[in-house]
Amino acid sequence: MTTKLSVEHLSAFYGPKRALDDVSLEFNDREVTAIIGPSGCGKSTLIRCLNRIHETQPGARAEGRVLLDGADIYEQDAVEVRRRIGMVFQKPNPFPTLSVYDNVAAGLRLNGVRDRNAIHVKVVESLRKAALWDEVKDGLMAPGVRLSGGQQQRLCIARALAVDPEILLMDEPASALDPIATAKIEDLVFDLKRTYPVIIVTHNMQQAARVAERTAFMYLGKLIEVGVTRELFERPKEKLTEGYITGRFG
């Protein structure tokens, strides 16, 4: 298990308000790590710091280090970091004015790729990886927003995969979806982890239990416990963790 991403003493702020408190954590390659915790515990903030989206919000900043393959992403070009670390958001957000095809191609085109064949190959490959190809192959030019919620989310996953990220971040990707669509996303994560390390934030503990090899529990901005999922759910070390996962609070 090689360490792909390493978080060291990360703290994050929205203006004066501290949302993350000295978090240190490691994420392994070809593995799914879930981050769970009650609302407001900082899990979304954490994941948004990992691809430097957090700081795009006015007034937001972060302190500490995040090492991708050993190099601190906060000392590199933010745009390049974001290309290497992909993200899927809670509410599916395909670009409203673009077709299905153009949505997936957007990342490539906007990064300067001109070769139409290369783009086409990548679009088809990404749609296949996102398990969406069969459903859209006859309607690639339809507006992206005409798809169902679950399909839109898979479209967003395809869009993120098209730029060949090294890590995939998912911020509660299935929370806006019905159970069938959720299951499809989980199956997708199961396939994707063969190629990419996946970090998934979820408020659904059973989902974390189903998809993740390792799980981290956060509360009030602090990392409380992290470990092999099976261990965390069968014999958690911290009382706080036990209280949350047995549903006694949160």
Binding site: R82, L110, N111, C156
Partner: peptide, 26 residues
């Protein structure tokens, strides 16, 4: 919506290009 902006930025595009090509177009 901010989420559209963030989606564009998350693809690794410089901000000005995200604004011109995605935000403005939306």
């Amino acid at each position: 919506p901010t989420t559209i902006r963030e989606a564009a930025l998350a693809l690794g595009i410089p901000r000005w290009r995200a604004i011109l090509r995605i935000v403005l177009s939306t």
